[in-house]
Design a protein around this nucleic acid. Structure first.
Lengths: 127, 127
DNA sequence: CGGAATCCAAGATGATACTG
DNA sequence: CAGTATCATCTTGGATTCCG
């Protein structure tokens, strides 16, 4: 790790950077708020799951998208992947401490929507 | 409005519905967590904005997507739109009370990512 | 100024088949 | 079981143009 490129924290932490096109936060936000990313994070809040468990739990997700989503969130450091070297293969997914933190935010959002859904639907009809 | 189809609240409020393909919450979640939906909600947390203000503030958004996003969130009851009948046109957007609630969740998520970005990027490189 | 309408490129997603 | 590879499709998103 070279020291040359280390940016000032104050630069990275300033609020409002997210509105800039080139802000790296946007990429992370995209992963986390992606169609399947949200549901996978919420699912993993309940604990470790195997691939096929997640596939069954998250209704409608294809193998491809689940694999892709898991890899992406693993690369971001939100998901921990453990592959047991046995046949048939056995792979477990869980949240890292960081994943659990962001998972709480996402879950909170999802819960709010589920709870307020009747109100939202009523507003839609009234509008 | 017929009464026949009104579902039991207990049905709609049960946690985990979001994992079902047909759960209506998924649509709302999609709107709120959409690429521009997140940024628009966060932007409006700071107060009322005009169309062109939002366009300037939310870097990279096209007129089309901004209009589409605003209409969608207005339909969901998160955004209040006021059109002043003057020339040139003057339209103001603000959050409804419900919009402010969900806005806080979304903002919290965005803020967390911005704050933890250095950690996330470090994790990416380490992984 | 604040859109609506149109066209088109790019990316996300899905079904299926295959593999270690 | 846990993926990967390939191809088809479907949705997003952007540029442009026009209008009240």
């Amino acid at each position: 790790m070279t020291k040359a490129k280390t940016p000032k924290l104050s630069e990275l932490l300033r609020r409002g950077e997210i509105f800039a096109v080139e802000c790296p936060s946007r990429e992370i936000l995209k992963h986390v708020t992606s169609r399947w990313g949200v549901l996978v994070l919420v699912a993993l809040m309940e604990g470790t799951h195997r691939f096929s468990d997640l596939r069954r739990k998250v209704g409608g997700v294809s193998e491809k998208m689940l694999a892709q989503t898991l890899q992406c969130l693993e690369k971001d450091g939100f998901i921990h992947r453990v592959s047991l070297p046995v046949v048939p293969p056995h792979v477990e997914y869980s949240l890292t401490p960081m994943g659990a933190e962001i998972g709480r935010k996402v879950e909170s959002l999802a819960d709010w929507i589920e709870i307020n859904l009747p109100t939202i639907l009523a507003a839609q009809r009234a509008g």
